[in-house]
Amino acid sequence: LPPSSTMVPPSLPPYFIKGSIIQLADGELKRVEDLKTEDFIQSAEISSELKIDSSTVERIEGSHTSPNFAVVQFSVGEHRTQVSVEVLVEYPFFVFGQGWSSCCPDRTTQLLELPCTKLSVGDVCISLTLKNLR
């Protein structure tokens, strides 16, 4: 097999690297790999501006621009707003009740050491929206 790159791409944020310290809304500090669904829900409840929305994965396909990227189409919130995001295949999303998942979990684990499962159609990811639009 040809050697694969082990560089962390610059567009992959540093806070997904295993061991990164994350501050919850109540001030508690946790490692990124220890975060639970409840941590996000409780933090959003404390937040005055942000709320958690459910984003269901409707489609995953390769990007036309680069093999390192994937296009993930979500159905967001009760209005089922259709949103597509282009991300690196190793970019992790947090799935409700499950944890970190990416299009290519092997690469996520290789690059970030973050325990990760395969993101699949039908998975419900945590996303954020504004609490009130006035």
């Binding site: 997904f16 994350i22 975060l35 933090s43 919130g77 954020l128 929206t129 639009l133």
Partner: peptide
């Protein structure tokens, strides 16, 4: 002796994609 290092701390919401604004009814 181990000198204390400053470790970056990231806010929880930076890990969550901000996907779409809530639509008003």
């Amino acid at each position: 002796n181990v000198e204390p290092r400053s470790v970056p701390v990231f806010p929880w919401h930076s890990l969550v994609p901000f996907l779409a604004p809530t639509q008003s009814d």
